[in-house]
Design a protein around this nucleic acid. Structure first.
Lengths: 131, 131, 131, 131
DNA sequence: GTGGTCTAGACCACG
DNA sequence: GTGGTCTAGACCACC
């Protein structure tokens, strides 16, 4: 998985890291059960502080995307069940994106095409099909 | 337009304000040409500092959503043309949302249903359709 | 002379007005001795407050670009002598523009070409040649 | 780099600051990659509020002249590519300056001499020439 | 009336 | 250490 961190972005590095790992899992670049690099390794590779990596990992763990085991390190968890909280967050963010898109002149069909095209690049659910 | 600001959120107040105004315009609660409350009025109503409101307004102006006129205060601008930069931002955010949704077990049809349902609550384009 | 005022610009209207009149005189659209519209006329044409027009005219008068006579109204003055103060202001503004251009990758030849091309659209000096 | 802020000028302090930093970079007093003083340091040195400095830095960042890194503070960015928008702004400002110069009796050769002399004090491009 | 600028000082998030 | 946010209140420019 390739990371691209923008040090001068206003998005905190640990959030960028968290987002890219989530996207990586979603796209199937990281499959359920696979290991993530150790905190130190990741920090060294990305040229950032290990506390920053640790923070990203802790968030991913709290969100249920990964498991952290003292012996095996961090591993990807299989797909979870939707929670009401997540749906609320999803709808709220989609509402904002929809409003922005609408105000930028994007029409319904085009918006849905984009949503569809992008969702179709996700493959994580496969990890459930093969038990 | 009803505002609900969460003072203890880690999302800055001016960003919350900006987001809610964008959503409000998108939903048609504020139509093209309509005035927003003056900086001071909005600050008083929301119980926040006027510089915070000002910052939100400046961002909305820079993004092309509103105009700020020395005489009339802030007014909503009509729908604009999509830019390549916006599409990139949109796709990047949708990619993250898709990944999260996918990992939370939401399937393609359901995701698209949500996208469609939410986009359909937007009405801003009407300001162009009606002559 | 065509005026284009941007009400939502951060440049005050009276400054925009002053600038456009100066440019108009420089380009020869208004020649020495010619009359400017009356304050009221200009205000009505431009859809702005007459105090705003008055302010612009007073500045142009103070700068020596026009004369204001109670009977004849405002008229364009002929070319004046350079003052040290003006040269300082000119050099200071050119320094900033040069720095910006340089940092945007514009090279010396190109910069001078632009300066030359634009200066050549000015014709006001002619009003001196014909005595 | 020496700053001279005029507190009684009608040009906002943050604009004066921004202009002087741009000029400083253009003249090569600040080279690409070099650090600017921290917001607080600059504020203390200049005897102004840190939010004022922050505002100037944010503008410079938005204009592409500097980068702001959470770790290193603000650093000078290398020379960029010209954009159409910048050329328009440059030509519009040069048109006004040309008109003023012309009306103050400055002739073409003299104007170009001044432009050339001033542009030649800029050295920022060097950061690209030297490998 | 409007927005824009500036201050002094507090508090927080990031790394 | 760094920048970012927010406040309360003052003052100014514009129209």
């Amino acid at each position: 998985m390739i990371l691209s961190l923008d040090m001068s972005s206003d998005v905190p590095i640990y959030v960028q890291l968290r987002n890219q790992i989530v996207t990586g899992i979603g796209k199937g670049e990281l499959k359920a059960g696979e290991s993530l690099p150790s905190v130190r390794q990741m920090a060294q590779d990305a040229g950032i502080n290990s506390m920053t990596v640790n923070k990203a990992y802790q968030i991913l763990k709290a969100e249920g995307f990964i498991e952290i085991d003292r012996r095996k390190g961090a591993t990807v968890r299989p797909v979870q069940q939707t929670t009401g909280i997540f749906r609320e967050k999803l709808e709220s963010e989609l509402e904002l994106l929809s409003a922005e898109a609408c105000l930028k002149g994007i029409r319904r069909e085009e918006f849905l095409d984009i949503c569809d095209r992008i969702f179709c690049t996700m493959h994580a659910a496969e990890s459930e099909v093969t038990p």
